[in-house]
Amino acid sequence: DNLRAKATRHIFLIRHSQYNSESSLDKDRTLTELGREQAELTGCRLASLGVKFDKIVHSSMTRAIETTDIISKHLPGVNRISTDLLREGAPIEPDPPVSDWKPEARYYEDGARIEAAFRNFIHRADAKQEEDSYEIFVCHANVIRYIVCRALQFPPEGWLRMSLNNGSITHLVIRPSGRVALRTLGDSGFMPPDKITRT
């Protein structure tokens, strides 16, 4: 009984908001003005949920850092942790395949890393966790889609069949029993339609 989980984990996976994708250097791929607005809307939405967030874990890429900077303003006092595990990449070769995107060599490196991110961050609460937790992960579309497939035990090759808007919220619930529920996938209904993008 001492080893049995007692608490529920609420995982909020946030896709970074719109960014300038012209440059090839990550440091120059900063948020657009609309992207900054989107992040404000996402921050407002998260703050309005009325839950006490335990931490924000974010990808170390520029667009995720900048999205986190804005979201954090709406969630004062919530600790931020940066991780390379959540950086964007090619998680697994998609099925059906896509003809215009073939990063074969990247699957080996990115796939192992993104799988490590899944195993590291997505699991039932530890036995010592007494209270339910609410954690935010600010990262990327491919990473979120792969995590959703893995968490639901759906074929991970299907990740590319899903589509996520910028600044959208994906909410996974992990019960002490290990049961997983996807409560929302890519919710952006809190944004006006003219501010919704998918870049």
Binding site: H123, Q153, P155
Partner: peptide, 20 residues
Amino acid sequence: RPGPTSGVWDSNWDKREPRS
């Protein structure tokens, strides 16, 4: 291929491998 894809739920899904 990571993870089961048979449609049968694995309740020990997060206990099979050590966390990295």
